[in-house]
Design a protein around this nucleic acid. Structure first.
Lengths: 193, 193
DNA sequence: CGTCAAACTATGCAGGTGCTTAGTTATTTG
DNA sequence: CAAATAACTAAGCACCTGCATAGTTTGACG
């Protein structure tokens, strides 16, 4: 998948973090083993102990590494309009790079069981929701905090659906539907019944 | 947690299925081991092999067992109105019995990796969405298929949030927000701009 | 070059894993 | 009651796990 031969001296740590995300995305947290990660990263499995100490620490660092790299979806969430082009872009992003999203779902479920991951999970979600809320404020919506949480949940749920049980086109239609709901809500605010 | 002492003759299989859901919900799929399940179920671990053969088969049967028992949320999804009382009931259900929901998130992620689980995952989600769509049709909405998918995704995403990163009150507000969006959408349909 | 710290690997082990084999108990059935 | 069947358990094995230990290679710097 990545470069065929070994990494250069000093690149092992980065390769291990990237491999961790890939392994969790493809095989789940129960497929996350020293051997699996080290084989994908093309290094010896004891290098994980050297760099991170324990498996828990590896996951923790991989979470930090992945969330800084998950900016593209955050940018998407802050888009000015949830319209056809937004829906197409979101669906295409998920189809092209599902790993980061899959990793995040695994990680957020794990954060319920491991208190030391909670803080980063909360920060990740609140980051998305805050960006979305700012966009809603700009467009003149009211009750933006709860609205942003609801809209993000809808996008989050649809991404999960696309990754697991639903085809891309259905998801795209549903995303457009969310945009339509927001428009209707804006007009209702301006012309209350 | 359950009854303190052993099961009666013939109840082992059911106990194992219930224990599987609990173990996956509390420790994740990587915590799903023969020993963990059998200890929770208060039986010998080889009874799993006897009844189900392999660990894969155990999970598969547990999925079927759990989905038939997840009707309560399905009934909720088919509620006539998404209002304050619906929001309160949903939030309270998740807080009181998080196991079934957590199990479903683990299972739907796993279904991406295990083709034999896909069909049941799709059926579960489509069941929820269809029930919701019927309710939307009754209320006079249009484009109900995509709308139902979007609204279910929002509820699904909010349940995930409540289970992991968000407090119950914030989720409740957001659920009410979804109801408000639907109302605004209905009125916009009747009085287009 | 020589020194040194950090990156990296080879080997191996104690404990946990899924699951097999062989045997025991309880329940049904004639 | 006796025979048959299914539920259940005890013991154990081959394999995999995280990770410790000990050693080697690499690049930076004087």
């Amino acid at each position: 998948m990545a470069s065929r031969r070994h990494n250069r001296y000093g690149e092992g740590r980065e390769a291990l973090l990237a491999a961790t995300v890939s392994v969790v995305a493809e095989r789940g947290l129960h497929g996350l083993t020293f051997r699996a990660v080290s084989e994908v990263a093309q290094v010896n499995n004891t290098l994980i102990s050297h760099h991170f100490g324990t498996k828990e620490a590896l996951l923790h660092e991989a979470v930090a590494w992945a969330t800084t790299r998950a900016i593209r979806l955050s940018e998407l969430s802050a888009a000015e309009e949830i319209d056809e082009s937004f829906a197409a872009a979101l669906v295409e992003l998920i189809a092209r790079e599902p790993h980061l999203q899959l990793f995040q779902y695994e990680f957020v479920l794990e954060s319920r069981r491991r208190p030391e991951l909670r803080e980063e999970a909360v920060a990740l979600y609140e980051g998305y929701i805050d960006a979305l809320e700012r966009s809603l404020v700009r467009k003149g919506h009211t009750n933006t905090k709860a609205l942003a949480r609801a809209v993000f949940a809808a996008l989050d749920g649809l991404v999960l659906q696309q990754l697991t049980v639903t085809d891309a086109d259905s998801v795209r239609e549903a995303v457009i539907c969310i945009g339509a709901l927001l428009d209707a809500n804006l007009h209702a605010d301006r012309q209350p019944a």
